[in-house]
Design a protein around this nucleic acid. Structure first.
Lengths: 197, 197
DNA sequence: GCCGTGATGGGACTCGGTGTCATCACTTAG
DNA sequence: CTAAGTGATGACACCGAGTCCCATCACGGC
């Protein structure tokens, strides 16, 4: 595809991660990122719409994975099974090899609210992708939205637990327990006496 | 309190809402907003940390209302009742008198992803406020987080239904049904057979 | 060897956002 | 009544994100 050095995006992401970790997100200039990647500011913005976006390249692929995983489930599968399938489909992105990078990225985002906003937007994107996929299976709107929210909540919990310095457990296991915890919780809340003021 | 014209913030918010509606968010300059409000760019940033923030002044107050409403519930109240109390406490902010402004604001935000990001951040703030309040009542972490997420989801649904041109129903009723719908849904999802891949 | 295509670099420009300093309105002490 | 103090403001300079436009260079096909 690309000519010259074909790894432009990858180089930019590595450079950004390194500089953000070294000097912080705010203190790092787009020009500096581009320089370290051997590119120019113009080229950076040709690859990423935003300075923030350089940290969220993978997030976009996740939405597709989730949708596809749900679309691939048997028509008889329960909604819970669909969510489980979606969360499992993300496993390849969270191997132990990427654990270090995930920690670095997490620390950067935690230190900057601009980046937290972007992460929430990406998460909302995941949410609507899942909800759409569920609706396509025939779930009604409210159920699809709630189930998607639940699924993404479980995903968020699982990811947060996985991306911890002490963690040694593989992502798949963590995701599984997170999902079951939430299911139990939902049952308990749903079983409460009717809500009256 | 303030001297000169004491309505600086209010004037800025009105001016911003008007200009955003007229020319769009992106095409409106902070200097233009300040001009129309009879102030300067410097003063704008003294009142709002951000250009976006001028649309989200009320959101901060909501978090306090929610926390306070939950803290004020009887110790015997169920979690569902706490959520209901929180959502009801927001009613004064959503009177029919403010319906028009809410519609305007909603349209502006819907047209700009920067503003959607900010709204998600504010919503996340509401979420952790509610979760904190529930934890303070003794709820365990997972339950508090899920319940808060559920409550804010219901709030989001209710607000979306309220802030519609055709809507005539008062916010309180809408919030009540949104909450019950979600509770029923949670029960259904929780009652599903155990989640296995 | 020539030309089209596409990735790149460079520079000019706008605007959001920060920081500093002077100014003005109003208050209070004397 | 005046002088000092306080707080909101305005004017200005400055930096960096993001946009636009145009020149350039590498590679493939002819």
């Amino acid at each position: 595809m690309a000519r010259w050095e074909p790894n432009a995006r990858e180089r930019l992401e590595r450079a950004a991660l390194a500089l953000f970790t070294e000097h912080g997100y705010d203190a790092t200039t787009v020009a500096e990122i581009a320089d370290r990647a051997g590119l120019s500011k113009s080229t950076f913005f040709r690859h990423y719409a935003d300075k923030r976006e350089v940290l969220f390249g993978g997030q976009n692929a996740l939405a597709d994975r989730f949708s596809e995983a749900i679309r691939a489930t048997a028509p008889s599968a329960t909604i819970g099974a669909c969510l489980a399938a979606a969360l499992e489909s993300a496993a390849p992105a969270f191997t132990s090899a990427r654990h270090g990078l995930a920690l670095q990225r997490r620390a950067i985002i935690a230190a900057n609210s601009e980046l937290q906003e972007r992460e929430l937007l990406k998460r909302a994107g995941l949410c609507s992708a899942v909800a759409d996929a569920l609706r396509a299976r025939g779930a009604d709107d409210t159920t699809a939205r709630l189930a998607a929210e639940l699924g993404i909540l479980a995903f968020g919990t699982a990811f947060a637990r996985w991306a911890t310095p002490e963690n040694q457990q593989p992502y798949a296991e963590i995701a599984h327990t997170a999902l079951r915890d939430l299911q139990a919780c939902a049952a308990a809340l749903g079983a409460e006496p009717d809500i009256r003021a």
